[in-house]
């Protein structure tokens, strides 16, 4: 995707596949997203930046049918929690906005979803999880 910009810096690294940028605590081994300088679970500052697994399983989901305040994209859109192999559960957009087409434990993969065009005509993208092996 040419001329794309992330909705926010430091959330992910582009690539095939893209990966969320998180952190891992050396003291308690817990993972975080987005990155934290201090571990929110144990307050240690021995925290390393890590690229998180690009695949996971669906744990909870819904769809947002009305645009929330400040939102710049289309509705409806999927919204849920994906559990990563690291043991981290990430609150995330989903590319599937029909809840009836999603099921618990479904394999999901990270993609960069177009959100809106910014003032300079660039495509703003947001990390989202899609059903794995989709089109």
């Amino acid at each position: 995707m040419p001329h794309t910009v992330p909705v926010h810096d430091g959330l992910f690294v582009a690539g095939s596949p893209p990966r969320l940028l998180g952190s891992r605590c050396r003291a308690c081994t817990g993972h975080h997203f987005p990155r934290h300088r201090t571990c929110p679970y144990c307050a240690s500052d021995q925290v390393d930046e890590v690229e998180l697994s690009p695949t996971g399983t669906l744990w909870s989901w819904t769809a947002v049918t009305a645009a929330p305040p400040g939102y710049r994209g289309a509705v409806p859109y999927g919204f849920g929690v994906v559990e990563l192999p690291e043991g981290l559960r990430v609150v995330t957009r989903l590319t599937e906005s029909d809840p009836s087409r999603l099921r618990s434990g479904q394999a999901m993969e990270l993609v960069l979803d177009p959100l809106h065009l910014d003032g300079e005509g660039r495509q703003v993208v947001v990390p989202a999880f899609a059903p794995a092996g989709g089109p």
Partner: peptide, 11 residues
């Protein structure tokens, strides 16, 4: 908010 992550009822 821009990314749709501030959808309080969704939480």
């Amino acid at each position: 908010e821009e990314a749709g992550l501030a959808a309080t009822p969704a939480y």
